[in-house]
Structure formats: structure tokens, C-alpha cells
Design a protein around this nucleic acid. Structure first.
Length: 280
DNA sequence: AAACAGGCCTAAA
DNA sequence: TTTAGGCCTGTT
């Protein structure tokens, strides 16, 4: 990947798929927002950054060290998405989904933030999830100075574990509050070691996550795919269920996509939500 | 107004 | 093993 220090941050030229709008709006993250010009600002990995398109590439407002140590991996620049799309284009439907989703990348996000955010996501729409997450960060995260204003980090599991349910009433997160507090305590007290999970098999990681209150198949698969980097995770929500059954029937097994299953899911999901699939 | 959201849990077949 | 109803809250 070509990158260099420039005015306002690091200039980089992605080798293949990189469409910020698709990456940030395809439902895998909740803390990136665009302005009118399509420039995104986000808070992730304990930092606030701006990502803007420019002639021939993009500029991200960070140091060279952070680009190498954090953002390269966060944006999954080590994998070749054009190749993976080609390998997933095994039938007319997947070809259409891959083409429609060209530019998507799977982010490698913070494990605890992903776990907590997707617990909050259950039975909620993206707008409300984002509001709840921002309220959580504003109230309990650490402030970061950013472009003359202030942003807030995602609060650590230890921080949340020190709170009571009544402290989180202002989030308006309802019955999900006890779930995130319980998860925070499991992580803070070492019963749930998220870093260790990423070294396990998919089945083992799934089993460990589902042992937590408030974490079922869907949330666990999101955590595994979006933060544990175990690529065969395949989250199935109501939209995915519809897409899968329409094209592959009720007996579909995501393992037919092997290690590309998670990415296949993203393309299918995005196509289902924003594309024009004549069969669903 | 009543139903429904990008699930999960529990109880009951 | 599968299914129904309830759950906080906000929106339609």
C-alpha cells in the first residue's frame, strides 16, 4: 500500500476495494459519520480521526505511526478484496451481490466495543443504536480533543463494570442495560478473555460468547466477524434470513463459502438492504 | 392505537 | 428441538 505523510495526515492509495460510504454504512460499525462532502469522522481504537477523499486516494488525520500500528489493520488492508469478490462470484446472485458491494471491507474493530455495541443492537435500528452508543461514550468515555471540539472514547469494560443499572437509565437502552453490565463484569473480572477468543476456532469462540447473558447466535457472530477476525462467522438476522432462504433454501450452510463466509454475508446483507434483488 | 423493530430468554410442547 | 410471548423504548 502506497502511503506518505502529507498536510493534515497520511495520504494513502488503496490497492483495491475501498468505499468509505459502503464500509461505514453497511452496519458493521456505529461511530463513523459523514459530513455533506462525504468526509467521514469517526472515533475508534481510542482515537478520533477524519477520513477524506482527495485526488488519487484518501487522507486520514493521523500520524505515520498510528497509520501503521492501528488503521492499516483496522481497515483490513492486508487482504485483497477484489480477489475475494472474484472467488465469491460463484453464481448469478453472488456475482450481483459482490458487484453491488464492491468497495466494502470488513473492519477489524475493538473487541469490547463490538461486543457491547452489538448487545445494544438487538431489536433496534441503526439510528437508535448509534444514539445509545454515543450517549454511552459521552457519559462514560474519556474526552479526546478533536478539531477544536471534543469526542469521547468508548468506555472500557472496567469502567462500565463499576457502574450500576440506574447509572445507565439515561441511555434509554431498556432491557439491554443488564446485559452490557453483565458482559462488562465478565470481561473486567477475567471470566471472558476476548483477546484469547480470537485464537480459538469459530465453534469455540461462539460457544464462549453465547455463555454470556444477552448474547445469542446473531450477536456472537457479529462479534466474531467484526472484531475477533475469525472469517467464517456468518451473522443471520431477519434480512439475511430472507435473502438466504430466497436463494439457497432453508438448508443453506454458510460453510460452503469456507473462510470467505463472513465476507459473503456482508455482500449479501448489503445487497439485501440497499440493492435491487428481484427475488426478495 | 397497536404493531413492529438488524434478538434473547424462558417456559412449554 | 422448535415455538410463543414478553421485554425497554421509539417510531409509525
Amino acid at each position: 500500500m502506497q502511503s506518505e505523510t502529507t498536510e493534515g495526515g497520511i495520504f494513502f492509495r488503496p490497492e483495491d476495494d475501498f468505499d468509505p460510504a459502503k464500509i461505514f454504512e453497511c452496519g458493521q460499525c456505529f461511530r463513523w459519520n459523514p459530513d455533506r462532502s462525504g468526509t467521514y469522522t469517526g472515533v475508534a481504537m481510542g482515537r478520533a480521526v477524519r477520513l477524506q477523499a482527495c485526488e488519487g486516494g484518501y487522507i486520514i488525520s493521523c500520524t505515520e505511526k498510528d497509520f501503521a500500528d492501528i488503521w492499516f489493520d483496522y481497515f483490513d488492508f492486508g487482504r485483497h478484496y477484489a480477489d475475494m469478490r472474484a472467488r465469491l462470484s460463484t453464481d448469478a446472485y453472488m456475482r450481483a451481490a459482490c458487484e453491488h458491494g464492491a468497495g466494502i471491507r470488513l473492519l477489524n474493530q475493538d473487541k469490547w466495543e463490538t461486543l457491547c455495541s452489538f448487545i445494544l443492537s438487538q431489536c433496534n435500528n441503526i439510528g437508535r443504536i448509534k444514539k445509545i452508543v454515543e450517549a454511552l461514550c459521552r457519559a462514560h468515555g474519556d474526552p479526546i480533543a478533536f478539531e477544536g471540539g471534543v469526542r469521547y472514547t468508548f468506555p472500557s469494560a472496567e469502567k462500565l463494570a463499576s457502574l450500576q443499572a440506574e447509572d445507565l437509565v439515561p441511555l434509554r437502552a431498556g432491557y439491554r442495560v443488564p446485559y452490557i453490565l453483565s458482559a462488562a463484569r465478565s470481561v473486567a473480572e477475567g471470566r471472558l478473555d476476548l483477546d484469547a477468543l480470537s485464537g480459538l476456532s469459530f465453534d469455540a469462540a461462539l460457544h464462549a460468547l453465547k455463555a454470556e447473558r444477552g448474547i445469542g447466535d446473531k450477536v456472537a457472530n457479529c462479534v466474531i466477524l467484526f472484531s475477533l477476525r475469525i472469517p467464517e462467522a456468518f451473522p443471520i438476522d431477519v434480512h439475511m434470513k430472507r435473502a438466504v432462504e430466497a436463494h439457497y433454501g432453508k438448508l443453506f450452510d454458510p460453510s460452503v463459502f469456507g473462510e470467505l463466509a463472513g465476507l459473503a454475508q456482508q455482500y449479501m446483507f448489503h445487497y439485501q438492504r440497499t440493492g435491487k434483488d428481484p427475488y426478495t
